[in-house]
Amino acid sequence: MSMDPATLLAIIGMALATYACRAGGYWLFRQITPTPFIRSVLGYIPGTLFVSFVIPSLVTGGLQPTVGAAATLLTMILTRTLGLAMLAGTAAAWAVYAVKQAVLF
């Protein structure tokens, strides 16, 4: 069990930068009185943020994550159960993976 000084400093730097993001956004928001426009922007943040996270991964990942995402979304809409949706999606992605492996060999 050791702690290298440079490693410790890098970890502290990362931790401070991350906490500044976590708390800083809300701290700034607390200083202002939000206009209707800002409220409207905030209303769109959750969906557009998650879309921006997911779609590029599907584009670069190709068929496997796309099939998985479709299965996740469908199961989520039908059952509204998070755990089930994730399992169904991963199973679907795995099926594509298995087929690809079988075709390759």
């Binding site: 994550p65 998070l82 994730m86």
Partner: peptide, 11 residues
Amino acid sequence: FCGLAVFVSML
């Protein structure tokens, strides 16, 4: 894919 599935289901 599990990690991405968390995001998709929440979307």
